[in-house]
């Protein structure tokens, strides 16, 4: 049983970039371990040394929501990417779009991928730029992101992914509940 995703209220940090690949999220030299833990300190290892890197600014302290561009998490299938994001403290990523494998991997680690249209992302980013300490509320059950001015934007999510996140459903357990059918498939 994984931790269910409850409503998340948190500061958010903007990473202005499209096509952020998983090699940036966690470079390959940190993939030689055999554990899922301890990767947060290497999150964006080659970007965090650059001056002004947004995730390390004081206003981003404690932020559990990352706001970014299109096609986030493209490239390598490494699940180390969501492990590193979660270990760093993130529980949700708001993006214009996600790469397929990253989206699957994120969901399986309790990291909520929120895909929003450009206009909605811009609205959130403008609000955050005006007030960097602003807290957003990600309401999975209602499928919406709320801003402090009581405005909100709805997001779409695969109903099964939503169910898995909200209930902490164990997917392998779900698959194995069909063990009879799997065995029958193998016999045919």
């Amino acid at each position: 049983m994984k931790t269910p995703f409850a409503t998340l209220k948190s500061r958010a940090v903007i990473l202005t970039a499209d096509d952020v690949d998983t090699d940036q999220i966690i470079p390959a030299r940190f993939l030689k371990g055999t554990k899922k833990t301890g990767l947060g300190e290497h999150l964006f290892a080659d970007w965090r040394t650059r001056p002004g890197f947004p995730l390390l600014q004081p206003s981003a302290a404690g932020a559990q929501i990352l706001v970014t561009g299109t096609n986030f998490g493209c490239g390598s299938s490494r699940e180390h990417a969501p492990w590193a994001l979660v270990d760093f403290g993130f529980r949700a990523v708001i993006a214009r779009s996600f790469a397929d494998i990253f989206k699957e991997n994120a969901t399986k680690n309790g990291l909520l991928p929120v895909a929003l249209p450009e206009a909605a992302c811009v609205r959130i980013e403008l609000a955050l730029e005006q007030n960097p300490g602003l807290e957003l509320t990600v309401d999975l059950a209602a499928g919406r992101v709320s801003l402090p001015d009581n405005s909100w934007v709805a997001f779409a999510i695969d109903p099964f992914a939503k169910h898995c996140l909200a209930s902490g459903l164990d997917e392998l357990g779900y698959i194995l509940s069909f063990a009879d059918r799997i065995n029958a498939y193998e016999q045919r």
Binding site: E79, E104, N109, D158, F160, I175
Partner: peptide
Amino acid sequence: FGIGTSEVEHVLGSQCLLQRKP
């Protein structure tokens, strides 16, 4: 197709994956 490590575990444990039709 490529999968993440959670899915590697699913396949090891069940020889199956949960997939939406692309």
